[in-house]
Design a binder for these strands. Sequence first.
DNA 1: TCAACAGATTAGAATGATTTTAATGTATGT
DNA 2: ACATACATTAAAATCATTCTAATCTGTTGA
Lengths: 138, 138
Amino acid sequence: MTYDPKYENKLRESGLRPTKQRIKICEVLFNSTETFHFTIKDLVKIIENQANIKVSLATVYNTVHAFNKKGYLKEIPINSSQSYYDTNISHHHHFFDEDENKLIDIDQNDVDEVMIKKTIPGKKIKSIEVIAKIVTDN
Amino acid sequence: MTYDPKYENKLRESGLRPTKQRIKICEVLFNSTETFHFTIKDLVKIIENQANIKVSLATVYNTVHAFNKKGYLKEIPINSSQSYYDTNISHHHHFFDEDENKLIDIDQNDVDEVMIKKTIPGKKIKSIEVIAKIVTDN
DNA sequence: TCAACAGATTAGAATGATTTTAATGTATGT
DNA sequence: ACATACATTAAAATCATTCTAATCTGTTGA
């Protein structure tokens, strides 16, 4: 079977075979150029509503994990019972709206580059994330 | 019953009555001037090893939550199945060592102040956290 | 093309952190 | 010392995530 090569490549490069279920996941995640912040539950709900096929939770989890590992998705560090992912993998940061439990992008240009002077012997910095928690301003 | 006023105040200001169990939790958390990064499981383990009294999980959770809410503890935003807390509530940031699942403080002076230009109408920034993930440097 | 097999899918079970419950105990103001 | 509001507790419930093991499918080489 052949699939949209756009998605097929992403999958193969993430170490996954293209299958109906995974292509469907790709369609939801990568169809639009817009940033998309989601939890696994969100993703499953969207697939259920759109799709003619059923995708099991296990498949959603392992596909998202593979994309995250490969760097096609980014997991956002926030304290929440669920993991949040972002389809915008460019270097940028986030507001986390604590009233609504919602992430909002902060463009790279809206934050001066974070310079960390401290170093740890034998370790290198893999990523730097800025999370600004916001609440209603009264 | 009367207790060490140092801990009694912290508890009362967090909206909690001082009790044997909560004082014990305070002793573990606030005895030292040193920074202490911990999970609930860590805390329970330390109490079990040190204490002559038993403290239930529920009590540990609700006491830690009250301190966090009041600001005597800070929850650190990282992606982990468990929540991490820090007894160092001064303005500072963190490395998260992904090899060892361990937090390391980064002093405020080791990071230039993070300035965010973007604003969200009706919202104010409550906190800004920088998390730098580190891994073994090969 | 097609058999064989490595990898994928699935429902459901297992895990593990956290929260809730409901019965019993205790600090505190009067 | 009493009444009562708040605490404590063990155990159950919840919920995201991971694992399992049976079944299925994409892929490769003959």
